[in-house]
């Protein structure tokens, strides 16, 4: 009897959250039908004319589509690669510093950008990268001409990847640092007795024991192949760099909310959601198969 009372209360505790999920996550999913309609706001979702796959056909025939998909994948993959390598290397270097106070200070500093919004970081970057900003002062000190980083298709992607590394690399080392603390110190002692120097211990013990974590993170990052970083790009791009910086999410935003092409924007967003969902499912499967990793 007592058990029944408990279970009743468990459902009760979950009730408010479930209602909110239904209202703001499940019900909007019915709005996906806009992707198959010539949506007219005054007529609403139920009464707008049904056009089947027309929005998708239009999307694939649109000259911009190819560029948007290429930009999205190129930027996302560059970020994934940089985001895997930099924290790994940084964690190894940090692990070699033995002074605890120094280590903690460095960690506190490098985690900070993770907690600042892309609006703030973009405000900072726009100042720094402007013609009279600090970066161009350095460029000129070395005899170069000032560069318009944010108005140059040559530099824009590099700015995106570098600033993304700046924001996230510190925070992404946390998981490696956790893995490093779990390495049994007697391994190092045994190796030292056998005459292994510092470099040998790094390459023969530390790195091999971190590889499983790195493989796991690589697998999970597969899910982000279509996430080029909406908030960052929205705050840094401008029409000059659409050619190299316009991605699916920014296009959906402009087409849907600024130009009122609801059907097209919803269709493009839906395509992205479905592909991302498949990628996440695959990456979790792989992570479970090879690393026995489960998120829940």
């Amino acid at each position: 009897m007592k058990n029944k009372k408990f279970i009743y209360n468990y459902h009760l505790m979950l009730f408010p959250g479930v209602i909110l999920l239904i209202l703001f996550q499940i019900i909007p999913m019915f709005g996906i039908s806009i992707a198959f309609e010539d949506f007219i706001p005054t007529k609403g979702i139920l009464h707008s004319p049904w056009v089947g796959w027309d929005n998708f056909k239009y999307m694939f025939n649109m000259p911009d589509s190819y560029q948007i998909f290429v930009n999205t994948i190129v930027i996302a993959v560059m970020k994934i690669v940089a985001g895997l390598i930099v924290p790994f290397v940084f964690a190894l270097i940090l692990n070699e510093a033995l002074n605890r106070k120094f280590k903690r200070t460095v960690q506190t500093i490098v985690y900070l950008p993770h907690f600042l919004s892309w609006v703030i970081l973009s405000g900072i970057l726009i100042n720094m990268l402007s013609v009279n900003g600090i970066v161009n002062a350095v460029v000129q000190a070395f005899g170069g001409d000032p560069i318009m980083f944010l108005a140059s298709n040559h530099w824009f992607r590099l700015v995106l990847v570098t600033s993304d590394v700046w924001k996230e690399f510190g925070f992404n080392t946390i998981i490696y640092l956790a893995a490093l603390t779990s390495i049994n110190t007697s391994l190092y002692e045994a190796a030292a007795i056998d005459g292994a120097g510092r470099w040998k211990r790094l390459t023969k013990i530390t790195i091999p024991l971190l590889i499983p974590t790195a493989v796991l993170l690589t697998t999970l990052s597969l899910a982000n192949v279509l996430n080029a970083g909406f908030e960052q790009i929205l705050n840094l791009y401008n029409p000059i760099v659409y050619q190299t910086g316009d991605v699916i999410d920014t296009y959906v935003y402009r087409a849907g909310l600024l130009q009122a092409q609801f059907g097209l924007a919803t269709a493009l967003g839906l395509l992205k959601s479905v592909i991302s969902f498949i990628l996440i499912a695959i990456s979790y499967r792989l992570a479970y198969r090879f690393a026995n990793y489960r998120i829940f």
Binding site: T266, K272, I295
Partner: peptide, 20 residues
């Protein structure tokens, strides 16, 4: 749990949420 995970992994997208 599946409801939670599903809503985390799959979203209606920007336009449907805005309309809602």
């Amino acid at each position: 749990m599946w409801l939670l995970i599903f809503t985390m992994l799959f979203q209606g997208g920007l336009i449907p949420l805005y309309m809602t």
